[in-house]
C-alpha cells in the first residue's frame, strides 16, 4: 500500500498513527504528543477531523471519555511582532 500522509505539516502517515494507537491504546491527544500529528504549522486544522476518524475506526466506537483535540488561539500563525503591536514588519 502506498504511504498515506495524514498530517502534512509534520509528515505523519496513517500507518504510524494506527500503530501508535494499537500499541498504546491511547487518546487522540496522546497520539498528538507521541507522533506530532496535528502539531504543525497549520495548527492541526487540516488533519484534526482525519485524526478523530482514525481513532474511531481503530477503537471501533465513539470515545466518550477521550480528551479531544482542542483548538486554542492563535488559530493562525502570527509573528511575535504582531502580537506585541510593534511596527516591526
Amino acid at each position: 500500500m502506498d504511504r498515506i500522509v495524514i498530517c502534512r505539516c509534520e509528515e505523519v502517515d496513517l500507518e504510524e498513527i494506527e500503530q501508535t494507537l494499537i500499541n498504546y491504546q491511547c487518546s487522540m491527544r496522546e497520539i498528538k504528543l507521541r507522533t506530532r500529528a496535528g502539531m504543525g504549522y497549520c495548527g492541526g486544522r487540516t488533519c484534526r477531523p482525519a485524526l478523530n476518524a482514525i481513532l474511531e475506526k481503530v477503537s471501533g466506537e465513539k470515545q466518550p471519555h477521550q480528551i479531544p483535540l482542542k483548538v486554542q488561539p492563535p488559530v493562525r500563525p502570527v509573528s511575535l511582532g504582531r502580537i506585541g503591536e510593534t511596527n516591526y514588519e
Binding site: 505539516c9 504549522y41 497549520c42 500563525p77
Partner: peptide, 22 residues
C-alpha cells in the same frame, strides 16, 4: 520542501487553510 525530510510541497487546499504553499 518539508523542513525536515525535504519532500516536495505545493498547492494543497488553495484557500489559505493548510499553509502548505508558504
Amino acid at each position: 520542501v518539508h523542513e525536515e525530510s525535504g519532500s516536495p510541497r505545493g498547492i494543497y487546499c488553495n484557500i489559505g487553510h493548510c499553509f502548505e504553499c508558504r
